[in-house]
Design a protein around this nucleic acid. Sequence first.
DNA 1: TGCTTGCTTTAGACAATGTCTATTGTAGGA
DNA 2: TCCTACAATAGACATTGTCTAAAGCAAGCA
Lengths: 138, 138
Amino acid sequence: MSDLLERLRGRGWRMTAQRRVVAEVLDGEHVHLTADEVHARAVAKLPEISRATVYNTLGELVSLGEVLEVSTDQRAKRYDPNAHQPHHHLVCAQCGAIRDVHPVGNPLADLPDSERFGFRVSDVEVTYRGVCPNCAAA
Amino acid sequence: MSDLLERLRGRGWRMTAQRRVVAEVLDGEHVHLTADEVHARAVAKLPEISRATVYNTLGELVSLGEVLEVSTDQRAKRYDPNAHQPHHHLVCAQCGAIRDVHPVGNPLADLPDSERFGFRVSDVEVTYRGVCPNCAAA
DNA sequence: TGCTTGCTTTAGACAATGTCTATTGTAGGA
DNA sequence: TCCTACAATAGACATTGTCTAAAGCAAGCA
């Protein structure tokens, strides 16, 4: 994640303890935390960090394209640090577990012109739903 | 939409003025209202209907499979009465307009076993994003 | 090193969306 | 027509996110 910090510094981001902590919390594979979860983990590392700062920082990371915002349920948004490799999501309908997945094919090509209603279509988001091994066993 | 009312009555749904009004509001093609919008339109027809009743009724319609819940933005859920024909959505990134679309192909088949992480995958939701003709012209 | 400046953080109020509860109302069958 | 169980109501409450005004501090510069 120090790559990320370097990139951000290079873009003129003022480095603060709070921002460093948020970036650290978001490190890893298959990480999809809500803002509140990010806040909870950030507080564990830096007790005086405020909720507003976490929201601000997440918003900035999204604007900079370093983190993706995904809404796999209709509750809180989740933040996905795996922004540099295009991917979709597979969600457990029971426990909410999320995995990054890479389907074959290009869904954008699967939308015929006749189904585009004159839109300039630029992006597609695919969410698979199912039951994870843990929940299936239970 | 009287089809819907008939089906519901057949399932033992107790018919009330409130439920009829909610069902009427949801009639049509490319209808994707938020709960609040449904409430506003319902109030226009039946001023004393309460917010809780609208939420309850929408929830019941979703449970019965008569209406789909879609979250195309991360704000309010939207309710789609077109539940009996599988489809996906195309959303304008600027104004939020939504169209029902029917891509060719089956995205479920595009997810290799190696990308299923042991999940039993049963469903897929595809959201296309772009700019609608109106917004492109502006 | 020690200013200075403007960006950043903070606490908490506020807003939007959704859920729950206790009470009152009523649809539909006996 | 009456009863009873289901439905509707008002409003409190919960969750998630946004905004504001004041205080703090990173980083450039003397």
